[in-house]
Design a protein around this nucleic acid. Sequence first.
DNA 1: TTGACAACATACTCGGTAGTATGTTTGCCT
DNA 2: AGGCAAACATACTACCGAGTATGTTGTCAA
Lengths: 226, 226
Amino acid sequence: MTSSVAEQPKPDRYEEILSAAAECFRQQGFAATSIDTVARYLGSTKGRIYHYFPSKMDLFNVVRDRGMELAFEGVMPGYQAKTGPVERLALMAHGHVVTMIRYHAFMQVLLDGLRMRRYGATTEFQREALERHLAQRNEFERMFREVIEDGMGAGLLREGEVSFLVQSLLVAINGPVFWYVAREGDDEDKYTRIADEVVGFAMSGFGVAWTPEMTRNLKTETGVEV
Amino acid sequence: MTSSVAEQPKPDRYEEILSAAAECFRQQGFAATSIDTVARYLGSTKGRIYHYFPSKMDLFNVVRDRGMELAFEGVMPGYQAKTGPVERLALMAHGHVVTMIRYHAFMQVLLDGLRMRRYGATTEFQREALERHLAQRNEFERMFREVIEDGMGAGLLREGEVSFLVQSLLVAINGPVFWYVAREGDDEDKYTRIADEVVGFAMSGFGVAWTPEMTRNLKTETGVEV
DNA sequence: TTGACAACATACTCGGTAGTATGTTTGCCT
DNA sequence: AGGCAAACATACTACCGAGTATGTTGTCAA
């Protein structure tokens, strides 16, 4: 290693740019955001950004990739928990809502990007990235669908047209991305309380009465950390 | 009147352009859609569009205005129905879902536009339009909140943090705009079935078991047409 | 001390786009 | 028949923004 102080003045430009881009894309959308916009946000010029990212599209894709990673990290603990389908569903939903709020910018950009499917992706590279994201989105949906079908099969969840119910659940737990606005003093505790409320609504939508305490107990039992 | 055939070749260019714009804005978003794009979609040139609309922003605003009108039309019958809060809520939700699917393009553009609040609206005209839309959105939310609070006060709806519950309900019934994709042969009947399912989920989220038949009966009783 | 390279900033190119200015056609009125 | 205006199309301008080419500075290694 070079020196102990050498690690301090290295603010990881790459991550810095990534976060700035996520915030700009979130505020104005992909098309309306110029590279210069992101540069201004950083207090720098285009040179810096193009030094780390080959193109605007590439930068966008990396933001979305990061968003996808975070989304999966949010639901995985619940998905892999060794309990019943109802409990797993609640844990997955709760983890997802917290993720949506905590990584607000990345998640909003991610959802925005998924709606770009109709956008005529010109180059084959773009198309490849698009296909990959859609495949991951489908896998994400599949995980929820699987747990929900398990629950219905066991008679624990309200019956209904599964495809529509899955979508309704997903938009509900994606919801905070659309309506949550960061307030001064909002901390992880606040995130949890919002998640409790949203999960309560979503689980109730499946005919299950679910309380915040049940989430809390489950987390200590199964060792799932937020 | 001039002649009987004279009404045939007057396809109401204004409405034609409006629908085309809604569809283009929906597919690519406001920023990524050029006036030439809309013109190509119409099989014409910019000349036509600028003959009817002074600017791109104005065209966008008219699309959003129309979307707002349709949204209010969708929920008003339920809101004004002379029944209990639970029934009114169900009718409002049902009407809204059907509206979201039926006027898919307009509604998606509307929701997109509402997220542009952070976008630095340059001219005072734009800002005025923006404020107007936000006010209408708030009024829309208020109507739902009012009915929900009525229902909770009467002990008919599950208790909870109202603000979060309202938002959760709204994203759920807005949901189809995000996940519904038009299929060959989808008709009003299909719309109704989707709405039944979504409303079932949403009402269940408030702890109310709600069936499609209840919606059907209510509509004949109160004379609410779809 | 002198390359050499990372890490940018600056200056430029070039295609796309909003908006405008100016034809051109087609009824319609008189 | 001739004028006029609606309803466009065409041609043009001015600017913005993605990407590139080139300049500048600091740092480290030999």
